[in-house]
Write a protein that binds this DNA or RNA. Structure first.
Lengths: 190, 190
DNA sequence: ATAATCCTAGACCGATCGGTATACTTTCAG
DNA sequence: CTGAAAGTATACCGATCGGTCTAGGATTAT
């Protein structure tokens, strides 16, 4: 009985990858055990609430990553630098289009209703943080809100399209274009 | 034994709505029967291949709708008029954001691998039809391809974001902005 | 009216589902 | 060295899964 995992925190990303690949309904306990190497015993030890708790922990983990690498920089840092970091972080996180956004995927089917709060919180915070950063960078109010929505939606759409066409170069290319469009909307540094 | 449905063609959109709401894995036979009113007998009469055949028929049905209302006009019609029609059709089809894109949803998880061909075909034809229409409208080659990708991705992303934030006004607003951006890239009529 | 066909209801099948319980090993503090 | 706590393996549970099958109602052509 070798120990593969030492704490819940180690189990979360393993299980997350299975949910990402199979979706919430598609990720059955047996599929999770076979792909992670964790038996049901371990799984229910770490997540007594079963699949629901696993998914909740994963969403919290994703949220924490984005808070640290995207949201807080946008909220607190120098806006231009924070936006530049956002593009790098997003491209890294989604592995240049090879990885999808689990939060977005959950939003599409009835799974959304189980996790409505964290899903809403994640996207709302992202859009709002970006909007405020744009305003601090000198973008006018209404335009900033529209840019922010457009940008976050653009990222999600690029993930869908890249996966549908099985062409992940499309994702990185789309990020570049979105970044250019955003830059073009930001007044030059005074 | 009243007859609710008279041919396979009548069953497809009913079952489609269930797949749309629950996803491929989430749509169990019992859920499908309870939501459509069609018993297993009828379902397997129309779709002897089971769930897989249902999903394939649905994808074909969706594709046919887009061919008729979006792709062929873009491919054959006057480009500016066809693009204008595309925006109307898309807003209608997705019920102003209340309905998701099943093809896009399938693309996100492992379901993609089962239906790789129709998923790829749908998006590839959309992007390509739009690209050529833009070129016929006078947009330069490379720019047309980028606009087309950006636009289709933008629509998909808007669906994700609108559902995640449970704010379908966001979808219609996003369509408007995407349309404006596209128009701005098209040279004025000579 | 009748026969052939089309369609439907639902019992039934083995497999798998999410989840529980228990017996076991490993780890580590005392 | 020992015992409690942490972590793991697996048999097992009732429910549900996708799918099959049969009996019979509805429809149509003749």
């Amino acid at each position: 009985m070798t120990r593969l995992v030492f704490e819940k925190a180690d189990a979360v990303p393993l299980v997350a990858e299975v949910f990402r690949e199979l979706g919430f309904e598609g990720a059955s306990l047996s599929r999770i055990t076979e792909r992670t190497g964790l038996g049901k015993g371990s799984l229910y030890h770490f997540f007594p609430g079963g699949k629901e708790e696993m998914a909740a922990a994963i969403l919290a983990d994703i949220d924490a990553w984005f808070v640290r690498h995207v949201f807080e920089p946008l909220e607190k840092g120098e806006p231009r630098a924070a936006i530049a970091q956002m593009w790098r972080s997003v491209n890294t996180y989604f592995r240049s289009g090879r990885r999808i956004c689990l939060v977005g995927a959950f939003a599409l089917d009835e799974t959304r209703d189980r996790f409505a709060a964290p899903i809403h919180r994640y996207f709302a915070r992202w859009v709002e943080a970006l909007r405020r950063a744009l305003m601090r960078a000198g973008v006018e109010g209404a335009a900033a809100g529209q840019f922010a929505e457009q940008t976050v939606a653009g990222i999600q759409g690029a993930l869908v399209l890249a996966r549908a066409l099985n062409k992940n170069a499309l994702f990185t290319r789309a990020l570049t274009r979105l970044a250019q469009r955003l830059d073009a909307g930001i007044p030059t540094q005074p």
